[in-house]
Structure formats: C-alpha cells, structure tokens
C-alpha cells in the first residue's frame, strides 16, 4: 500500500543521482483502491507540501484522470475529494518504481517499497 501521498514524497537517493530523480515511475503495478475516511483538513494541510505535477502525472499513469493540469488556487470541496481519493485511496501493492535519472528500480512488495541500496550506491 504505497499510497500516492507517500510516492509524492519519495525520490531516488542513489549517489550523484540528482537530475530527474523525482517522481519515480511506476511499472508492473498491482493497484488496489481502499476506501479511506475522508479528512479534507488533512488534505488541505498537505497542500503546501504537495508536488502537484508529479501527482497528476503519476495518477494518470495509473489511469486516474480526475485532477487538472494546474493546481487550482482555491480548491473546492469536490476538488479536495478528488485529491483525497488519489492521495489516500490509491494503493500500489506490488510493482516497481523506476528512477528516470539513473534507472534504478525500487521494488514494491506486499505494499512496502524497498528503498534499500547497496552500500556503494548510497550518496554520502
């Protein structure tokens, strides 16, 4: 259950990979929609931290086209609900996240992304 909110916070951390290292690209995804209690205040609070373009591109790659290209300046409750669905209810259970910059693949298994790197790959 990598939710898209978590995916929106994760970048590649391979040593010297600092271009196109975010967002990671999903592939071979098993997607599960889990209804989650709506908390629009939580979504509002997260808005300043959100990378909108990354979220929209990622949601579309997973088949959800409910979000507009540009982040609305003032979000209506309906827009917040659409955002809640994308951020909190779309879970990737299995699959891969690939870095566009260096090609590193982070596998997702049992809903848990594996961000471990071999010691020589870690940036210091």
């Amino acid at each position: 259950m990598v939710r898209l909110i978590t995916h929106n916070m994760l970048a590649c951390h391979v040593r010297n990979c600092n271009k196109d290292n975010f967002p990671l690209i999903f592939s071979e995804v098993e997607l599960v929609i889990r209804e989650t209690p709506e908390n629009l205040d939580f979504i509002r609070r997260f808005l300043p931290k959100l990378d909108w373009t990354a979220l929209v591109d990622t949601a579309r790659s997973l088949g959800d086209t409910t979000l507009p290209d540009e982040q609305p300046v003032e979000m209506t409750d309906d827009q917040l609900r659409a955002l809640h669905h994308v951020l909190m209810e779309m879970h990737v259970e299995e699959g891969n996240m690939t870095c566009r910059g260096c090609g590193h693949v982070y596998p997702i298994s049992n809903g848990i992304p594996n961000m471990l790197l071999a010691e020589h790959e870690v940036g210091r």
Binding site: M1, T6, L116
Partner: peptide, 8 residues
Amino acid sequence: ALWECVRA
C-alpha cells in the same frame, strides 16, 4: 486500515 511503511 493499514499503516504506511517504507523499507530503508
């Protein structure tokens, strides 16, 4: 519901 976890 399940909690969000990251292996790192």
